[in-house]
Nucleic acid binder design. Sequence first.
DNA 1: AGGTTGACCTGGACGC
DNA 2: TGCGTCCAGGTCAACC
Length: 270
Amino acid sequence: MPELPEVETIARGLDKRVRGDVIESVWIGKRHQPLKSPAREIARTLEGGRIAAVRRVGKHIVFDLEQGAAKHQWIVHLGMTGRMQVALPEDEILKHTHAIAKLESGREVRFVDPRMFGKLSVVRDKHGFEAQGREPLDIGFELFAELFHKRKTPIKSALLNQKLLSGIGNIYADESLFRAGVRPRRRAASLTREELKKLYAAIPEVLNEAIAAGGSSVSDYVDAEGDEGFFQLQHRVYGREGEPCLVCKTPVKRLVIGGRSSHYCPRCQK
DNA sequence: AGGTTGACCTGGACGC
DNA sequence: TGCGTCCAGGTCAACC
């Protein structure tokens, strides 16, 4: 489900609603293996923690927790289908609910994830969680260009590589490449400086427009308030195979690159 | 070492 | 109605 704009939307919603609240107790379902930290350590780290802030790092949601002088972090990765809900105890517990944090205010933060690709983990004794790659909204052009300089992999795959840039996924890779006029199969190293500049400009443009729209709801994505995003209405190529390009009317093509479907306009993108 | 592929899961859409 | 197939917003480990 979630790429940078969706995770940003969810993290903002959570921050608005639960910042300052205290986690009283934690339940973690037995079925849920996707724990990067042992369930007991997660529970021990969360319980008693005051939520100082909720924010996004790459595609991760980070809860900054304070227990007295101690600082911990709860890290949530939503995988493909993960959801975070703020619910009341009497609200129906959805199928595939894998973790529930009960708050002092009486509300609950619930983690729901049908496909179980999501991951929960904690960082203890510091606020030290960092993404592996650079933030695409906060990188200079020279560094950006350097990332792709010697890469033989298709630019589409390079954009999805979280060790290079963190936060871009399949939708926003395709949308960024369309706006930059670059075909997804082009080798990253083959992009000219001009093309790199277009891509460098296109990425934050797309991401920021998507954040403003509350993310893309392609199938079942909803934010922490249960609201859908609507950036899918502004997709120019993603999910539009066979439909006319919004610029030149040429049918949008779809091909598979690195196992991911990729959409592009064969006329607008070189 | 960098690049590519398949595996991990559930569920919805579609064709017969 | 039911079955089979394909597809999905993401990562990883295992190969070359």
